[in-house]
Amino acid sequence: MLALTRKAGGRIVIGDNIVITVVAIKGDSIRLTIDAPKEIKIYRGEIYDAIAAENKEAAIPADLSELTVLKELHIKK
């Protein structure tokens, strides 16, 4: 992890094509702009965590009896 201190107007460059600029600092809030290619997905942390949790939940079958049926079909071959 890298921790940096920037003033308003300061920039951080990631790779060759991502630039993060500090636009404003007001109390405990910092306003940033992120300039990145459209193919790079950018999420707020809480949104990313919610998506990851939803994906994890979707990967677990709601009814484990479905797995038993699939195992029996595989054995019958």
Score class of each variant (00 low, 15 high):
1 M>R: 06
2 L>T: 13
2 L>W: 11
4 L>T: 08
4 L>I: 08
5 T>N: 15
5 T>I: 11
6 R>E: 13
7 K>Q: 14
7 K>T: 12
9 G>S: 02
9 G>V: 02
9 G>N: 05
9 G>Y: 04
10 G>S: 05
10 G>N: 04
11 R>M: 11
11 R>V: 11
11 R>T: 14
11 R>C: 06
12 I>K: 02
12 I>E: 02
12 I>L: 10
12 I>D: 02
12 I>S: 01
13 V>I: 07
14 I>W: 05
15 G>K: 02
15 G>T: 00
16 D>C: 00
17 N>I: 00
18 I>H: 01
18 I>W: 01
19 V>I: 12
19 V>C: 03
20 I>F: 00
21 T>Y: 01
22 V>P: 03
22 V>A: 08
23 V>Q: 14
23 V>P: 02
23 V>T: 12
23 V>A: 10
24 A>Q: 10
25 I>A: 10
26 K>E: 14
27 G>I: 04
28 D>G: 09
29 S>H: 15
30 I>Q: 13
30 I>A: 15
30 I>R: 14
31 R>G: 09
32 L>K: 05
34 I>G: 02
34 I>A: 11
34 I>E: 04
34 I>T: 06
35 D>K: 01
35 D>L: 01
36 A>V: 00
37 P>N: 01
37 P>M: 04
37 P>Q: 06
38 K>A: 07
39 E>V: 00
40 I>W: 07
42 I>R: 00
42 I>K: 00
42 I>P: 00
43 Y>R: 03
43 Y>V: 00
43 Y>T: 03
44 R>S: 15
44 R>D: 15
45 G>D: 09
46 E>A: 09
47 I>Q: 09
47 I>F: 05
47 I>R: 10
49 D>L: 12
49 D>Q: 13
49 D>F: 09
49 D>H: 06
51 I>E: 07
51 I>D: 05
51 I>R: 08
51 I>N: 03
51 I>G: 05
52 A>Q: 09
52 A>C: 09
53 A>C: 06
54 E>F: 12
55 N>K: 15
55 N>W: 11
56 K>Y: 11
57 E>Y: 08
58 A>S: 14
59 A>E: 10
59 A>R: 13
59 A>W: 03
60 I>G: 04
60 I>P: 01
60 I>C: 07
60 I>H: 06
61 P>D: 03
61 P>A: 04
62 A>V: 12
63 D>P: 04
64 L>E: 09
64 L>A: 09
65 S>C: 00
65 S>E: 11
65 S>P: 02
65 S>H: 12
66 E>W: 07
67 L>W: 04
68 T>H: 06
68 T>W: 07
69 V>K: 15
69 V>Q: 14
70 L>G: 06
71 K>W: 09
71 K>A: 08
71 K>M: 08
73 L>D: 08
74 H>D: 12
75 I>D: 14
75 I>K: 14
75 I>P: 04
76 K>V: 10
76 K>M: 10
77 K>H: 10
77 K>Q: 13
77 K>G: 13
